[in-house]
């Protein structure tokens, strides 16, 4: 059985499994974490204050927007997704996509059941 000559990249790793996308294990610094932490606390305060103001139909929209923003920065920084491979990013996206499919397609039934009563 012939042994391959070792090429520049370590052995014929066409599937790139042994060092996925040559991820360099970026280490997020405590200072970055602190900035994210402060932002999260500020957004919490913001959402509490916004709840006391009457903005009509925008109240839930703003509340969800702030919550989504907080969730996104937790995912990107605390959970390191900003520095991870594309596979991880697509996986996270797929999860939220499926959640949205569950909500919107089920909603399509409830919204259209009795127009005007929703």
């Amino acid at each position: 059985m012939a042994h391959e000559d070792q090429p520049e990249q370590h052995y014929n790793d066409a599937a790139n499994v042994t060092n996925p996308e040559h991820a360099s294990h970026h280490i997020v610094s405590p200072a970055q974490y602190a900035v994210v932490f402060a932002t999260l606390l500020a957004c919490t305060a913001l959402t509490v204050f916004a709840a006391d103001i009457n903005l009509g139909v925008f109240n839930p929209i703003i509340a969800l927007a702030i919550a989504s923003f907080k969730g996104v920065i937790v995912i990107l920084f605390f959970m390191h997704v900003k520095y991870q491979s594309k596979l991880i990013k697509v996986t996270v996206g797929a999860g939220f996509f499926m959640f949205l499919v569950l909500v919107t397609m089920t909603l399509s039934d409830y919204i259209s059941r009795a127009w005007g009563l929703w």
């Binding site: 709840a51 109240n59 839930p60 969800l64």
Partner: peptide, 13 residues
């Protein structure tokens, strides 16, 4: 983070 506004802050005006 999502439960808090959805459960506690529905309509606090």
């Amino acid at each position: 983070i999502f439960l808090f506004p959805l459960l506690y802050l529905i309509n606090r005006h």
